[in-house]
Amino acid sequence: MDAGLRDIVRSHVGSEDAVGHLREYFGLDGGRPYTGARFEGLGGGGDRVGVADVVTAEDLVAVQMLSVRVPERVSLDLLEGDLGQQMSKLLREIPCELDMVDAETGELESGSAAEWAWDLLDAQYGVGWVMAGKLLARKRPRLLPVYDRVVRCVLGTPSSFWLGLHHALRVDDHALHHELLDLRKRAGIPETVSALRVCDIVLWMAHHEGHRPLRCPGHGTLSP
């Protein structure tokens, strides 16, 4: 699975369309940017000092930029209730200034604080795996990737996306990670956009137009 995921990602990152897709997404060639272009940077970012371990109203708005909406009752619980307190406790255990490529497997595997946070949102509060992943990616954009049904289809529905991508980034002396940083530079997008976000956008742009008409199988349960 790891080798297959790595090959798929590298084929898209290295494609002739990758730079153009990134520039289109961020509106750098005169077009209107996608709303998701503001996901990481809105309000100064979800991982900025002072709010990195707290889910804020800005985080909930940022998630909407990726076409999902946290249910009203869950939103209130995140901002004012027990869920917010539980998330803050878990976020304090998840490194804020760590890139996935530099993380140890223990930071991402079953039993990690990140996995517990994902499970808390998805299984216990029922927001769904897509929304849970996007909220965590907003809080830890360098460590945890955005992941949705479109990207899952592109990658062939891996059983553990976090671990598969982690391995792909680290092999060959971190070659894929460096390719993502180089792609970001060539596309002219800000360095504040994480390597993981570059990866997500390239994969998503390659398939989102064809995903719905083809009724692709990017759905169901999975592990992060």
Rank of each mutant, 00 (worst) to 15 (best):
126 G>Y: 00
207 H>V: 06
109 E>F: 07
42 L>D: 01
13 V>N: 12
36 G>C: 01
115 E>W: 13
51 V>Y: 06
154 V>L: 08
15 S>G: 12
103 A>W: 00
147 Y>N: 13
182 D>N: 14
165 L>I: 10
22 L>G: 00
62 A>E: 03
110 S>N: 08
18 A>N: 02
168 A>T: 07
206 A>D: 08
181 L>M: 12
31 G>A: 11
104 E>W: 07
161 F>I: 08
178 H>D: 10
168 A>W: 06
45 G>S: 09
10 R>Q: 14
24 E>S: 14
146 V>W: 09
107 E>Q: 14
69 R>M: 04
217 P>R: 09
66 L>P: 01
198 V>F: 02
82 D>P: 00
8 I>E: 09
145 P>F: 14
211 H>P: 09
59 D>L: 03
121 L>N: 00
212 R>F: 13
23 R>V: 03
83 L>G: 01
38 R>F: 14
223 S>I: 06
72 E>M: 09
85 Q>V: 10
87 M>H: 03
58 E>D: 14
60 L>K: 10
59 D>Q: 11
177 H>A: 14
99 D>T: 11
123 A>D: 03
180 L>H: 04
97 E>G: 01
55 V>Y: 04
41 G>E: 11
54 V>P: 02
148 D>M: 04
196 L>M: 03
165 L>P: 02
167 H>L: 07
133 G>H: 01
77 D>I: 07
86 Q>P: 03
174 H>D: 14
212 R>N: 12
173 D>I: 04
55 V>N: 06
171 V>Q: 11
177 H>P: 06
34 Y>C: 06
105 T>L: 11
195 A>Y: 00
33 P>L: 02
195 A>K: 02
3 A>R: 14
65 M>F: 13
63 V>Y: 01
138 R>Y: 00
18 A>K: 08
43 G>P: 03
95 P>L: 03
180 L>E: 02
145 P>T: 15
156 G>K: 13
201 I>N: 11
66 L>I: 04
39 F>Y: 06
36 G>R: 05
26 F>D: 13
174 H>W: 05
133 G>N: 07
53 D>H: 14
111 G>L: 05
89 K>D: 12
31 G>H: 09
110 S>T: 05
114 A>R: 08
65 M>K: 05
98 L>N: 12
123 A>I: 13
37 A>V: 04
59 D>P: 00
17 D>A: 13
4 G>E: 15
207 H>F: 06
13 V>P: 06
218 G>L: 10
183 L>E: 05
155 L>A: 11
187 A>C: 04
48 R>S: 09
148 D>W: 01
102 D>Y: 06
111 G>E: 03
160 S>L: 07
109 E>Y: 08
20 G>M: 08
123 A>N: 00
198 V>N: 02
33 P>H: 12
130 V>E: 14
95 P>K: 10
103 A>E: 07
221 T>S: 11
52 A>D: 02
95 P>G: 09
207 H>Y: 15
